[in-house]
Simulated assay, not measured.
Amino acid sequence: MKIQSFIVDAFTTRLFKGNPAAVCLLDSALSLSETQMLLIAKEFGFSETAFVSPLAANTYHIRYFSPKMEIPLCGHATLASAKVLFEMGITGNITFKTHSGLTLEIIKKAEEIAMSFPLSTLEVSSISKEILQGLMISEVESCFYNQEHNIILVEVAASKMLSLLSPDYGKLKSIKTDINGVLVTARSSVEAYDYEYRYFWPWAGTNEDPVTGAVQSFLAPYWSKKLGKEVMKAFQCSDRTGEMTVAIAKDQVIISSDAVIFSKGEITI
């Protein structure tokens, strides 16, 4: 069996920036087993690989795998998949049906792609001293937990602190925890952005996700409430960097950005 595959840099307009994802186009959702999907994701080695198969006109089933496990929702792999489909000549809106039961509406707007993701909630939480030490964080402004993504959100006082973080991944990996990862965020000191963030998840994926969009389902409403704004500019200050516009609309967050296709090829199974 031969499978069309693509490597796409998402949440950027420049190659070698943003977050690289692999996209595999399948004839059917049953073309590959979960074991095969996980092995392919491990082979690519990116934070996520998306597996896309047609359901109806402009409607597709999508699954996301990190090198370690299946992920219920991934923003940059969704953006990468939409970029591939639009570049292949798909016109009109695209609907993705995730394996976890979500429906994602995708719209092409000029040079950007807009994705509608469901909002999710936060609850006040705490984080272990061990994890904070592993992240090299000494002071925390606030701490919350998001159940849908199984992620702890930590706010620090300044975006400069955020950009200087240099986690001890060996220490983090040695800590037994049930969470998928820790999202660290701060109000941006740069005029062009409203807030910045980084995402560390050595327990469920790669050490650091270069740019992640799915977290906006709880991060965007968090900052919307704090800043009193419904439209914001978010910046992920990882080594590769990435940015997006987020807008709160009823029970959805609209995430707008672009992506660049780096390569396309064929997998033989």
Rank of each mutant, 00 (worst) to 15 (best):
residue 116 S to V: 09
residue 64 Y to N: 03
residue 117 F to I: 15
residue 82 A to H: 09
residue 66 S to I: 05
residue 74 C to F: 12
residue 96 F to K: 06
residue 120 S to I: 07
residue 90 I to P: 09
residue 62 I to M: 04
residue 45 G to H: 13
residue 23 V to T: 05
residue 41 A to Y: 11
residue 106 I to G: 00
residue 30 L to C: 03
residue 35 T to W: 01
residue 30 L to N: 15
residue 80 A to Y: 07
residue 35 T to L: 04
residue 41 A to E: 10
residue 112 E to A: 09
residue 116 S to L: 12
residue 118 P to H: 08
residue 28 S to K: 13
residue 48 E to Y: 10
residue 40 I to M: 12
residue 123 E to R: 14
residue 78 T to D: 01
residue 70 E to T: 10
residue 50 A to I: 05
residue 32 L to N: 10
residue 49 T to F: 01
residue 72 P to G: 07
residue 27 D to Y: 02
residue 93 N to F: 04
residue 121 T to K: 15
residue 30 L to A: 11
residue 69 M to F: 00
residue 25 L to F: 01
residue 75 G to S: 06
residue 113 I to V: 14
residue 118 P to W: 11
residue 66 S to M: 07
residue 76 H to L: 07
residue 34 E to S: 15
residue 90 I to H: 11
residue 92 G to W: 03
residue 53 S to Q: 05
residue 61 H to R: 12
residue 49 T to G: 03
residue 50 A to M: 06
residue 93 N to E: 15
residue 105 E to Q: 14
residue 23 V to W: 02
residue 63 R to N: 10
residue 71 I to H: 06
residue 71 I to C: 03
residue 50 A to W: 03
residue 109 K to R: 10
residue 48 E to D: 08
residue 59 T to L: 10
residue 84 V to P: 02
residue 90 I to W: 01
residue 57 A to D: 13
residue 51 F to A: 11
residue 122 L to V: 02
residue 97 K to R: 14
residue 32 L to M: 12
residue 47 S to G: 03
residue 54 P to T: 02
residue 67 P to G: 04
residue 115 M to A: 02
residue 118 P to S: 08
residue 78 T to Y: 01
residue 74 C to Q: 08
residue 122 L to Y: 14
residue 91 T to V: 14
residue 105 E to I: 11
residue 97 K to D: 08
residue 94 I to H: 02
residue 42 K to M: 10
residue 56 A to L: 08
residue 55 L to G: 01
residue 122 L to K: 05
residue 104 L to Y: 10
residue 46 F to Q: 12
residue 37 M to D: 07
residue 80 A to N: 06
residue 91 T to S: 11
residue 80 A to M: 10
residue 58 N to I: 04
residue 100 S to K: 12
residue 94 I to E: 04
residue 100 S to G: 02
residue 109 K to V: 15
residue 103 T to K: 13
residue 93 N to A: 13
residue 55 L to Y: 04
residue 35 T to N: 07
residue 93 N to Q: 15
residue 88 M to S: 14
residue 107 I to Y: 00
residue 110 A to F: 04
residue 77 A to E: 07
residue 83 K to W: 06
residue 85 L to H: 06
residue 35 T to K: 13
residue 83 K to D: 02
residue 114 A to L: 12
residue 22 A to V: 05
residue 32 L to I: 07
residue 74 C to Y: 09
residue 37 M to E: 12
